[in-house]
Design a protein around this nucleic acid. Sequence first.
DNA 1: GCTTAGGGTTAG
Length: 775
Amino acid sequence: MIVAQTCMLRDLFWKNGQCIRWQMMKRLSKLLYKHCSRKRDIWTANNLSVEDQATPEHMPINVFCFGTLAQEFSDSVEKEDLLFLTGFALVKSPTVKYDKRYICHLELFEEKGSTVFVCKHATAAVHEDVTMNSMKKGENQTVEKNLKYAYSKINELKPGMLANIYGVVTFFKHPFLSKGTDYCSTLTITDQTGGKLSCNLFNEKQDALPQIYKTGDIVRFHRIKIQQFQGELRGITNVGFSALTFDGRMGSPVSPRTSSKSYHFSDEDRRIVEQLRQWTMEQSLILEPTLKLSEVQPQQFFDLICQLVAKAEMDRSSTLLKVWDGTKCLYPIHKVQVDGEVLEGNPALIFELQNISVDIMAYDNHTEVAKCLKPGAYVRIYNLHAKLQASTGSDPQSSKCIEFYLHGGTSYGRGIKILPEDCYDVKELKKVLESAELSSNNYLSDCTLLGISSPLNELADNKEKIYTRLERCQEESVTVLTSHQHMEKAPLINVKTCKPPQKFCIRAKVESYEPKRLYQCVKLYCPTCKTLQEVPDEDDIAHVLQEASKKPLNSKLHNMSWYNTVLFDKKNQDVNKIALHFLDFEDVVQDPEKTLILTERVTLNEINQLSRKFGYIILVTSTEEKLTLLDLSAPFLIQGQLRHYGCKHCSDVQDINCLQQLTTHQSWSASTISQILGIHLLHYVFMIKLTLKDETASVDAMLWEEAEKFFKFRAAEVIASEVLQEQLELTMNMLCPKEKNPDTHPWFECCIKSYSSEDQIVSYQIFDTVLAEKI
DNA sequence: GCTTAGGGTTAG
């Protein structure tokens, strides 16, 4: 529990004898603009709408927090939190007409004694008891200590309820894209009461829907809305819905699968899950829909847990999957004729497993997922059909064989799911695959004995297991995600079609990149006005210096109180001198690398020489009465090999005499110097456009804000270092080899976010991704 | 701004 302002529970304000209990519906509503009379109010007022669950019509009310309370509140509150509001003013709402909310709104000011209590992860039902009791007793205790969720039994559900329930999944469909904006998952659950509840779960993110692997899994739903539909009750996602999924097998770890960042899970929850498991087993509720290939009978529909050996795109609506599960089908199996070139997979392994693998045709909506699979992946195929082939030959009995189809559509939960390697089913599968390999090796030795020439003699000696050799086919990416590794990889078509802003993890190839001339990848960026510009080239700088050196030196400005001046003759030109003005002259000999000098009439070449010796060089020119900086087209400060530029739009250049403030070299740095001179420093940044492509689409993604983290070196260093320039070139050539078919490029996994600019153009940027160490 | 789906086999 977070208390926005210290206050004891017994001090809670009571109105008409009732404590006001609100469930927050929306976080900092976007209606803010509409509600605030002046634009600057936005920064001081937070608006949210809350729903009083006690009112039958679920009428939301607007609440405004002002001043410091607004800030504290917005920092601590999240969707679904339970709020206690005290000391508020009840004001007639001017927005009733269009927001259709409660006729009054609440206004809270800290200075007027308003208080907001924010309670995390609570349910209203339980909260009421806890709060009321606490208040009656006048105890100053936190609510969290007593926080407990109340779960409804399925047969006790009533329309209109916002329920917390546990249940065993008896049916489910994988998340699929609905005709609306969200992904949809349909499932049915039951519990010890025998009641059944079908649910329609929606979320714009596929990963946010419950991760159900099989019927028999156990789910926990919080805040699911119960509705009536065609005479039956339905559960539907509502604001604040959250879900946990558990394996339904007795004895397996009670560890929830969820996309929630935080969730409440107690011993009581563990007990409920274990009781449901026990009950499911006793009832023989779930008929195991999974079969081994050796158990398959013709005409059956079943689930298959297997490893992908190879795949081939047959046409637009069908993909061939060659899989094995370590057992051999007892019936003759139809082999799909496919050109070896289209077949993606290791030819040696395909050959090695030819007698034990089966061909599956995945149709229509399943081709999308099938195409994304990599040989070596472990998958569960739901509702696979072992269809008996129509007889063709003269002897109908003998020619019949089984064809495996994953038909189009989603009925009966039909689909494909990639299984994580550490899941129970995969561990079990590996055991079977391992024992199957022994016999397949026996088969190989027979071949050798019989003198049959085979490319596998060599492989037979290889101790490495076939399934791990297959796993290796899932080529590694040249990049590493620094977080979100658990997120499912989204096809690029999703990235393109989902409304921004969104975040995704993707796996693709770099088809091309821009700019091709890599030195142009580094730009100058002004964090103040957010503009980008090219780094001036040597010619541009030389030109500015040349113009400046046309101005004569002014001896009146030499040897002032805060600098000492030394004049040098230019080569063979007596009249053409350059001037160096030294700050902190005593230190020059001792610590030249810490010295700050102002230079006049120098050439680029001379600057390069001077910068090797002196720490900081500021380029100046003389006027009649003072030294001034050069045009900001040139760098105003040189620090070793680094050239610092100022923003022409944002800088308000100050008199050079301000530099007197710099008393010791301890205070010299690019940022302090630029600050004193009123210059807004431009930052060196990478700006590279990568065209990423997978089977579904191509997307132009910028490598920008996190590019330095990605490459693990700084943009400013690249400008100054030929070694790094070379390294950058090598890296880009590795990501996207020139003159090669993009399909042969390495895999590029990254996190990508979409956002739209003011002019509604959607852009994509790479984040939380770095180059892999080994490359 | 706020619906979407609302289980019940393809027909290759």
